[in-house]
Design a protein around this nucleic acid. Structure first.
Lengths: 336, 336
DNA sequence: CAGTCAACCTAATGCGTATTAGCCACTAAT
DNA sequence: ATTAGTGGCTAATACGCATTAGGTTGACTG
């Protein structure tokens, strides 16, 4: 800015006013300054900006998954892609960090806050009994919880969520209509909020219909556990006729395991994946899956966070309920 | 620091000396200051640090892939996981950005550089005729090219690479020993450096053995193109007996396509995937794959970048050649 | 006992930006 | 004709840290 001021023959303050659209300089001076700045390829130093109270122009995202459980995943990159799209427009940076566990993640938030490194954070994989909302509220760090249930207890936190309960109800509806009475839900990690929500809803829906042979089993989302649980339940005395998997990886692995045991999909057992991706179309038959727009999910979350950072008030935004794409893996119960 | 100074009864300078291990304060004072800092939960403001010449304590990574070609991927997250591990130790942040294309990516580097936002960058997906090394050299931004060939032309750039040529040679060796003479290589994106390297090596190896029915076909890495190319070559007059896929997604899709056409794997056609992941064990038979330690790859790259940022000189580091894991998808040629 | 030096500390400055206070010339209003 | 107001600018300050230049004390030396 010193250089620009010199070239344009004005003071640094005038340059600042001109470039930030503040009053205090004439239009001709403003234009001149802008041209010089352009020509010199000037960009404000984020450090200096941050130091003079403008915030860090950065939001944070930490992913707390141990490195070894990091498998094939399409959701996360798509989510980030959507987030980026919105952040890039506003020239906001995304600081990304991986953590070993939630405690580690909290430490990262604390550090970021103390270092004034981020203006806000995006929180993923909300849990039941999650310490993060409390912490972020305490720190006064604007945050958007992605995938969590609406949270009225924390006034600084926005929430972006899909109605898992509604989706689960519609899946059960569909399977029930096809004649399925014995359903097993191969769920994800036990501590996650949406896992518990789906399990609860499934139980409620089953109760409403008087279905007694419906259960949920939690896993670590891996193909190995997905296959193992599938084998276990199919080898039981009264095998289920429908399997609902909480992600695509387990669904594919589970379908393969079922085939190995001699169960034909969908004649003997129907399979539904709670995540749609290319994976679901790599096996025969193609898997029926709940599809959602993960990129748009990311966009929405980022938009909420920027609103919050700009001083807006927190709110809960609902994204469309995932839609069931019927493919070849679901059908009427044999003999029904 | 003002608060700490007040609490400890010394000047701000003394606090700075004490906390940064500089001489100029007695040991007792140093301890006292440190205790106070600890108690107050002090962390240096990155903005202020950066402003006073310490660098941004951040490195950048931009991924230039259009959002819609973002498919199932295990490599990238693992790479980032390794990168993080090293960066986190040194309390360096990772600024992540997605870009539409290489030009966009270059613009991001320019902006980051002008804004003093990063101390260095990690460059992925190097291309033949890549504009990025020139740009980064010109900007004087320390950089590590991940997966590129050693580059002596740019003195500020380190390179971390695996010997694709060696790996390709060993794969061809293996297939040749099994009796394969007609091999098709379903390659990745045409502009990428490693794609071209593998293609060149395959041609050279074929030439050395007098194999005339060996070819490479470039794709966009998607399951759709992987399957399409597979169908096309298998339906030709003299179908190949071995297929080498540049990633796991195409390998799986290709194997499925082959099966649909009535080709049995590996009796009629052998399949090798140039990327190992859970995917390769989700299909029957399990796919033989080239396995590499992507996490370690990331660690190495991050280590090189930190060395460079610390003022070290550029160099080319070779990571181990990917190893072929023989599973059920490769075998002797029928009738051999 | 004055002089020298080292140890320990404080004061002052700079980094690049935004902002606030102040200054000057000129116009409009009383 | 004086005053109040205003547009257009400059000077000065703050932000939080690192660093450099001083300054004070006490011990040690000749």
């Amino acid at each position: 800015m010193k250089d620009i001021a010199r070239h344009a023959g004005v003071s640094q303050s005038a340059v600042s006013f001109a470039l930030n659209g503040r009053p205090g300089v004439s239009d001709v001076t403003r234009d001149r300054v802008r041209r010089v700045a352009e020509q010199l390829g000037w960009r404000p130093s984020t450090a200096a900006r941050a130091l003079s109270g403008e915030g860090a122009a950065t939001v944070g995202l930490v992913l707390a998954r141990p490195a070894d459980t990091l498998g094939v995943d399409s959701f996360f990159l798509q989510l980030v892609s959507g987030i980026q799209e919105v952040l890039a427009e506003r020239h906001l940076g995304l600081l990304f960090q991986m953590a070993e566990d939630i405690a580690d993640e909290c430490a990262v938030y604390r550090r970021w806050w103390a270092e004034h490194r981020v203006d806000g954070v995006l929180v993923v994989d909300p849990r039941t009994d999650d310490p993060r909302p409390d912490l972020l509220d305490e720190l006064g760090l604007p945050a958007v919880v992605i995938g969590g249930p609406p949270d009225e207890r924390h006034l600084g936190l926005s929430t972006v969520w899909a109605d898992d309960a509604g989706a689960m109800a519609s899946v059960v509806d569909g399977l029930h209509a096809l004649g399925h009475r014995r359903i097993v839900h191969i769920a994800g990690l036990p501590g996650l909020a949406h896992t518990e929500r789906r399990i609860r809803t499934l139980r409620a829906e089953a109760g409403r219909r008087g279905l007694t042979e419906v259960e949920s089993v939690t896993t670590d989302y891996s193909d190995a556990e997905g296959a193992a649980v599938t084998r276990r339940v199919l080898e039981g005395p009264t095998p289920p006729t429908a399997l609902i998997y909480d992600n695509d990886v387990m669904a594919v692995a589970g379908a393969a395991a079922a085939a190995e045991l001699g169960f034909s999909v969908p004649a003997d057992v129907s399979v539904v994946s709670w995540e749609d991706s290319a994976l679901c179309r790599m096996v025969k038959p193609w898997l029926s899956a709940l599809s959602r727009d993960s990129v748009e999910f990311g966009r929405t979350a980022a938009r909420e966070l920027t609103a919050l950072v700009d001083g807006g008030s927190a709110r809960a935004v609902r994204v469309p309920v995932p839609r069931l794409i019927e493919r070849g893996s679901t059908g009427v119960v044999r003999g029904a």
